[in-house]
């Protein structure tokens, strides 16, 4: 199989996010980036498919802080090729990102009859929509999202899609196709730092020069701001002992002990 995984860096929400002076974007100065979680799962799913079916895994990413580390890590995990598109990801909305990637796949003549494009199902900054369906529509490929398992076969794949309440559906998808991956069938694998360092010395990240889109953000964003809590929890403070005592009172008040 010819597997493409699209990797995207997103702000790490464990850190405090600040709005920039323009009031319409995030202040990038203190942002720490990490690989979007569904994309990490998409990579794992691709590696599992490669192990089962054979083939090649190519990881593709826009330029973003720490993206080289992520691309080298993907190579260390078993990806065969890493491609960076030297356009600043943070300045592109999903619609523009999909346009650039459409050109990438068209120009590279990359799509073969056994190609599978695996973006994450969605990302926490998908204001303009999800990449997977936008890309599928532009490339006229079949698409399904919220995928949590993929089994390969000749010319098609069988996928599991999550609905709600633990209910899932099994779908058959004709290749080539775009699958928005929510979670891989196994947790993303761990790769030792030493192996990543070794790959950094031996492997190369390819660069694909593509034109910057004319309209990087499509939407008319009026402002970004931190939510003002409608209500705030009643906060309990004190030592661990004191907090636990008060929580016991809360449980008693709610008649559960």
């Amino acid at each position: 199989m010819n597997l493409y995984v699209l990797l995207k860096m997103v702000p790490d929400t464990v850190e405090e996010l600040e709005v920039a002076a323009d009031g319409k974007s995030l202040d990038s100065e203190f942002l720490r980036f990490k690989l979007s979680e569904p994309d990490d799962h998409a990579l794992e799913q691709a590696l599992i498919l490669k192990e089962k079916m054979g083939g090649k895994v190519t990881v593709v990413a826009f330029d973003a802080p720490e993206v080289d580390d992520v691309l080298f890590t993907a190579l260390a995990k078993g990806a065969d090729r890493a491609v960076k598109i030297p356009l600043n990801q943070a300045s592109l909305g999903t619609v523009a990102s999909a346009k650039v990637l459409t050109e990438f796949f068209a120009a590279a003549g990359a799509l073969t009859s056994d190609s599978l494009l695996l973006p994450g199902s969605q990302a926490i900054d998908d204001l303009e929509g999800e990449l997977a369906p936008l890309l599928a529509a532009a490339l006229k490929l079949p698409y399904i999202g919220v995928v949590c398992g993929v089994t390969g076969d000749a010319g098609k794949v069988t996928v599991l899609k999550e609905f709600a309440g633990g209910l899932r559906g099994e779908f058959e998808v004709t290749l080539p196709a775009v699958l928005g991956i929510q979670s891989a069938e196994k947790p993303p694998r761990y790769v030792p730092v030493a192996k990543v360092r070794a790959v950094m010395k031996s492997a190369q990240i390819e660069e694909a020069a593509l034109a910057s889109p004319e309209q990087p953000i499509q939407l008319d964003i009026e402002r970004m701001y931190k939510p003002e809590a409608a209500g705030r929890a009643q906060m309990i403070e004190g030592s661990t002992e004191e907090v636990a005592d008060q929580l016991v009172e809360v449980l008693a008040k709610n008649s559960v002990i």
Binding site: T13, L26, L127, P227
Partner: peptide
């Protein structure tokens, strides 16, 4: 719109 896991809100206008 609620972004970044609920940490940021964004007002967007469809003119």
């Amino acid at each position: 719109s609620q972004l970044f896991g609920g940490k940021i809100l964004s007002d967007v206008k469809l003119p």
